[in-house]
Amino acid sequence: MKYALLLYSDESKNPDYTTAEGAAEMEKWFLFSQELVEAGSMMAGEALSEVETATTIRVRDGKTITADGPFAETKESLGGFYIIDVENLDGAIEWALKIPNVGYGSVEIRPVMEFSDAP
């Protein structure tokens, strides 16, 4: 089954990747991604720019409404995601537990909806 692992954290608590400790932290992300690829479970994965760079768009009554900021202001914001292919939820949980930010942020596991080819 395919799962999206949505990575949330409080940006003020994220490591400062410009420092030496931050670089060590960054190394953990590379190692994690590499492990996923080697296991053949990696479908996709990206990190997102800070939430302050977000733009939210809505169309209401045919009119475009553009807002500066994320869909919802929350303490923890979406900072990245992986799409993985594993056998079941326990497999997804196993990977989620290895994600570097699970110790200071949180990982939401969402199954990717499957659409059957049959008419």
Partner: peptide, 10 residues
């Protein structure tokens, strides 16, 4: 069913 919760001994 939709989250893929397994029936297995961990």
């Amino acid at each position: 069913r939709s989250a893929g919760i397994p029936f297995a001994v961990p």
